[in-house]
Computed example of a mutant assay.
Amino acid sequence: MADTIYFELIAPDKRLLSADVSEAVLPGQEGDLSAQAGRGFLILKLRPGILTTRAKDGEKQFFLRGGFADVGPDKATVLAEFAIPLEDLTGAILADEIAQAEQSLDEAKDDARKISSWDRLERLQTLKARLAL
């Protein structure tokens, strides 16, 4: 497949995807980013959201809690805090993620942690509404 990038999605417990893709849309902390062949080098902090890959054999989507991405011109690697295929995401899993975010917000000791926890909570609640789970 011409104009592809080698993409890996790695969760703490397993490698979820290793494939040549035409594009990987990453949920970056500052907004979505498309990793494609020829892109410059970039390290990106990820937010809770949906990661989408597009390849010759179709599209795959995953829910991410967050993590980091290392993107280059011919390879992109995502190290996720937690990741599962989107079709495996249930209302119960998302409710648990929201509960964890609420707990983090309640336990935050300084403004930076409060802002980060609030942002995570808001993104998860928006995702829940968008997916109608």
Rank of each mutant, 00 (worst) to 15 (best):
F7E: 03
F7T: 01
E8I: 14
E8W: 03
L9P: 05
L9S: 09
L9F: 04
L9T: 02
L9Q: 01
I10T: 06
P12N: 07
P12I: 08
P12G: 13
D13M: 05
D13S: 09
D13N: 11
K14T: 05
K14P: 05
K14I: 02
K14Q: 11
R15L: 13
L16T: 02
L16A: 12
L16C: 10
L17D: 03
S22L: 06
S22M: 10
S22D: 15
E23T: 08
E23P: 01
A24W: 08
A24E: 05
V25S: 01
V25I: 15
V25K: 07
L26H: 07
L26I: 09
L26V: 02
P27D: 06
P27F: 00
P27C: 04
P27Q: 12
G28N: 07
Q29V: 15
Q29M: 15
E30I: 11
G31Q: 06
L33C: 08
L33N: 11
L33M: 12
A35Y: 04
A35F: 07
A35S: 05
G38H: 13
G38C: 08
G38Y: 04
R39I: 04
R39N: 13
G40L: 14
F41D: 14
F41H: 13
F41M: 14
I43W: 03
L44F: 08
L44Q: 12
L44M: 10
K45I: 04
K45A: 15
L46M: 11
R47S: 07
R47P: 01
P48M: 10
G49I: 06
G49S: 06
I50A: 01
L51A: 01
L51S: 03
T52S: 09
T52D: 07
T53D: 05
R54C: 06
R54H: 08
R54N: 07
R54W: 03
K56N: 10
K56D: 10
K56G: 06
G58Q: 13
K60I: 01
K60S: 07
K60P: 00
Q61L: 01
Q61M: 10
Q61W: 08
Q61V: 04
Q61F: 01
F62K: 00
F62N: 00
F62A: 01
L64T: 04
G67Y: 02
F68H: 10
F68L: 15
F68S: 01
F68Y: 10
D70E: 14
D70T: 11
V71H: 02
V71W: 12
P73I: 03
P73A: 12
D74R: 08
D74F: 02
K75N: 13
A76L: 04
T77D: 12
L79W: 05
